[in-house]
């Protein structure tokens, strides 16, 4: 028994060190005065200052936030509808096709998705003249399409846990389907919608490969900017940027952990 607990502790230590040591190094060296990323030259906020003075980086971040916000919202709308259909509509013609198309973006390598989106946009432009060029609109369409699958899975599994008899009761009392959805189903699945939106947003804001295909000149998202500067070598500003991202995600995780614990305490 003792041997087993030692093994388990070891597995936890090794596993989590592997996951977190690289992130920890980024955070530490973001405060490094020296430009040499691996030699400690004293504590400094220098790179944060440089990061916030980098106009190109800032405008790339702004574009990423805009694209992420719009595409996550669209993905949540379409993904919720799709999740509702899969969980509540029973059999219909084309159900297998919809289910297949919904799960495809989650398992398909991004390069294949990226080339498909771009070639489709080019072909559409040739045939119907729209979209006229690659940029904001194509980024949003592509990001919505590959993230809505994730939203639909989350919504679908939340609906599967819910008791459908509540909807049926409302229906028996004469409520129309649309009213049932907005007054009963939607309030109950709001948490799933929120986590779906957040996931879609973070996938969009983090995407490199698909954006590289569907973006055009003048539309450099933050990951595209980071990718091109990292390809040229180490840049301490990226450490500062990474630390800020870790800070934001860490805070969000902490808040959600605390809410879960408080809720668990209330129930208990």
């Amino acid at each position: 028994m003792l041997k087993r607990t030692i093994f388990q502790k070891l597995a936890l230590i090794v596993g989590f060190s592997f996951l977190y040591l690289p992130i920890l190094l980024i955070v530490i060296f973001s405060f490094n005065e020296s430009k040499l990323v691996t030699v400690w030259g004293g504590f400094s906020f220098k790179w944060y200052g440089e990061l916030f003075r980098d106009e190109v980086m800032l405008s790339a971040a702004w574009l990423s936030l805009k694209v992420g916000f719009i595409s996550a919202t669209l993905a949540t709308i379409f993904g919720t509808i799709a999740g509702l259909i899969m969980a509540r509509f029973g059999p219909f013609k084309g159900r297998a096709l919809l289910a297949g198309m919904m799960s495809t973006p989650m398992v398909m390598p991004e390069v294949i998705l990226g080339i498909s989106f771009l070639l489709a946009f080019v072909a559409m432009e040739k045939m119907i003249g729209w979209p006229a060029d690659r940029g904001f609109v194509t980024l949003i369409i592509a990001h919505t399409t590959f993230t809505l699958a994730y939203v639909s899975v989350i919504v679908q599994s939340r609906l599967a846990d819910m008791d459908p008899s509540i909807d049926e009761a409302a229906q028996d009392l004469g409520a129309r389907p649309l009213k049932i959805f907005f007054w009963i189903t939607l309030p109950m699945i709001i948490p799933a919608l929120a986590s779906g939106w957040l996931l879609a947003f973070s996938l969009s804001v983090d995407d490199v490969v698909i954006s590289q295909f569907v973006s055009g000149p003048g539309y450099t998202t933050l990951p595209l900017k980071v990718f091109s500067s990292v390809k040229l070598g180490i840049d301490p500003k990226i450490n500062a940027l990474g630390t800020l991202i870790v800070l934001i995600v860490g805070t969000a995780a902490l808040i959600s952990a605390l809410t879960v614990m408080r809720r668990a305490k209330k129930k208990g």
Binding site: I26, V37, G250, A253, A257
Partner: peptide
């Protein structure tokens, strides 16, 4: 579980970038 999922929420690109500093010639 949250600790397992959290890296997934932080930037993929920056996690890959971290390894440049670790594996470099004069790296970690």
């Amino acid at each position: 579980l949250m600790l397992v999922i959290m890296p997934f929420w932080t930037s993929f690109l920056i996690r890959v970038y971290a390894w440049i500093g670790i594996l470099k010639e004069n790296g970690f």
